[in-house]
Computed example of a mutant assay.
Amino acid sequence: MKRFLRQILTAALCLSALGGCMKWDYGRTEDFSATERGLFIVNEGMFQYGNATLSYYDPETKTVENEVFYRANAFKLGDVAQSMVLHNGVGWVVANNSHVVFAIDP
């Protein structure tokens, strides 16, 4: 009897995990292109608010584009963006409190 209940419980847990999945709609993305002389600016945001952003400054046109990570990916950067580095053509952005490191195409 215990074995039968254990099997039913296992099956119920598996079905509930599969039934809890949903299709995630991130929203609309925008194209963004960075020049080679520009500067990425990491705005860390407030702790536990999830409002970190990534901006881009183009010194040739003297313009700043805000929310470039969100515009390119249609989801927020996370909570407390700590730093960004460019290495071998890949941008690495650390979101400290979100426990994530993003590899982005600049």
Rank of each mutant, 00 (worst) to 15 (best):
M1S: 12
M1H: 09
K2W: 04
R3L: 10
F4N: 10
R6Y: 10
Q7C: 09
I8K: 11
I8D: 05
I8A: 12
A12D: 02
L13I: 14
A17E: 06
L18S: 08
L18Q: 12
G19M: 08
G20L: 14
M22A: 13
M22Q: 12
K23W: 12
W24A: 14
D25C: 02
Y26V: 13
R28D: 12
R28L: 06
E30L: 08
D31E: 15
D31H: 14
D31S: 15
F32L: 02
S33R: 14
S33K: 14
S33C: 09
A34W: 05
T35Y: 05
R37N: 13
R37A: 09
R37S: 10
G38Q: 03
G38A: 04
G38K: 03
L39Q: 11
F40H: 04
F40C: 04
V42E: 07
N43H: 05
N43S: 05
G45R: 02
F47S: 15
F47V: 15
Q48G: 05
Q48M: 13
Q48L: 13
G50V: 01
N51Q: 11
N51S: 12
A52L: 07
T53N: 11
D58C: 12
P59K: 01
E60Y: 06
T63S: 10
T63V: 11
E65S: 14
E65L: 10
N66M: 06
N66L: 05
N66W: 02
N66S: 09
E67V: 03
V68Q: 07
A72G: 06
L77D: 03
G78T: 05
V80N: 08
Q82E: 14
S83F: 01
H87M: 08
H87N: 09
N88R: 05
G89K: 01
V90A: 03
V90E: 08
G91P: 00
V94R: 06
V94W: 07
H99P: 00
H99T: 07
F102A: 02
A103S: 06
A103P: 01
P106W: 02
